[in-house]
Design a protein around this nucleic acid. Structure first.
Length: 374
DNA sequence: TAGCCGTGGCA
DNA sequence: TTGCCAAGGCT
């Protein structure tokens, strides 16, 4: 297409790469300019970043690479250790798949990640986006990495107003056409940086965009309205209960959840079945054992992806010790070392506050989050 | 293919 | 307070 005949130029990778060289974000998992990327670190960061903000991932990434500097080290770790350190990041199937993937790479692939999209795509936890991202970023393959940022940038660039997710096919094809043979890894990261800092979902800063002259949505004044998304489904409210048990010596009951499903494999307090809506007055039927369960005032609120949860907390103290499947008794001293998902921390904090006062909440304090690295 | 699967920050 | 949404994958 001739630039003189078209009203709007067609976007080219060089324009974006020039912008990237000046404005790239410096992130803990990124190789610096001229540095060779480490596939293990690229993979780890990409898994952590799935549906998760850069700011949230930062401390987790640093902790993981410090504790497990190589894929072999991660593969050799017990899965429970990996889940414990993942606690709080959410989407816990990612942690289970991460560990399974590490074992496959370490034990079956000689410690080397595949360098093609196809090879990567076959590993657990690696889908179309992540395979493309690792192939491009870690191995400089001419691969497209289409995430939410890229979908937004490309939908606007070509004014694609087909609603998501139907537009994915066209967006993927358009993106693939843009990927350059030279510096495909930087290109992938450049589009994501553009989406994260300039071509934002709301109030995009088109004036600063290196592609603003090529952008059909900008030309039409419709950038902020793209991509078109289907309306969200509302999240029903579900009620449940948590049971906090303490023995005479002060140790507390911790439950390991089933290996799959919601919070699969994670430690926590004893809960009523979360697939049901349970009236608090009926909740004692689901207690782990007979005891004088005391209902605490107030509720714990938590929002999951597809429902809102309102937990009533019950406590029992001076419980006589006995064995239950998938449970253990944890001393107060060891409690801070248990990796609790956020909803479990909330329930535990509520119980500890009621029984022992505000200071006791620190035993299950939410991990302090460092400031966003960008 | 659409539902399941977390969490925190921000407007 | 509520909704949106962030480097998605699995079934």
């Amino acid at each position: 297409m001739s630039a003189t005949r078209s009203k709007v130029r067609s976007p080219d990778a060089g324009t974006l790469l020039d912008w990237y060289d000046r404005h790239r974000r410096r992130l803990p998992w990124r190789a610096g300019p001229g540095q060779k990327p480490n596939p293990y670190r690229v993979w780890l960061s990409e898994i952590m970043l799935q549906q998760t903000t850069v700011a949230a991932v930062g401390p987790y990434f640093l902790r993981f690479v410090e504790q497990w500097p190589t894929v072999e080290a991660l593969a050799a770790a017990p899965q429970d250790d990996v889940l414990r350190d993942w606690a709080g990041l959410g989407y816990y199937a990612r942690a289970r798949n991460l560990h399974a993937c590490a074992k496959t790479v370490a034990e079956d692939l000689g410690g080397r990640f595949p360098d093609t999209e196809e090879g990567l795509r076959a590993l657990p936890g690696i889908g179309a986006y992540t395979a493309g991202a690792i192939a491009a970023i870690a191995f400089d393959q001419q691969a497209a990495a289409v995430d939410g940022n890229v979908e937004r940038v490309v939908a606007r660039l070509f004014a694609i107003d087909t609603p998501m997710p139907a537009a994915k096919t066209e967006i993927r094809a358009r993106t693939a056409d843009l990927v350059p043979a030279d510096r495909p890894g930087d290109f992938a990261q450049a589009v994501m940086d553009l989406g994260a800092t300039i071509c934002t979902p709301k109030r995009p800063v088109c004036a600063l965009c290196p592609w603003n002259e090529e952008c059909l949505a900008h030309a039409g004044g419709i950038a902020e309205s793209l991509p078109v998304k289907a309306p969200k489904k509302d999240r029903p409210l579900r009620r449940g209960a948590a049971f906090w048990a303490e023995r005479g010596n002060g140790s507390v009951l911790i439950v390991k959840r089933p290996p799959k499903g919601l919070l699969g494999g994670m430690d926590g307090v004893w809960l009523t079945p979360l697939k049901q809506d349970i009236d608090p007055s009926d909740a004692r039927e689901h207690a782990p054992f007979k005891a004088r369960w005391n209902r605490i005032a107030g509720e714990v609120e938590h929002v999951f992806t597809h429902f809102r949860l309102q937990l009533t907390v019950f406590t029992a103290t001076d419980v006589t010790s006995f064995a239950l499947p998938d449970t253990r008794w944890v001393t107060k001293t060891d409690l801070p070392d248990v990796g609790l998902p956020t909803v479990m921390r909330k329930a535990a904090a509520h119980a500890l506050r009621a029984l022992h006062g505000p200071k006791a909440e620190k035993l299950v304090a939410l991990r302090r989050r460092s400031k966003a690295p960008n």
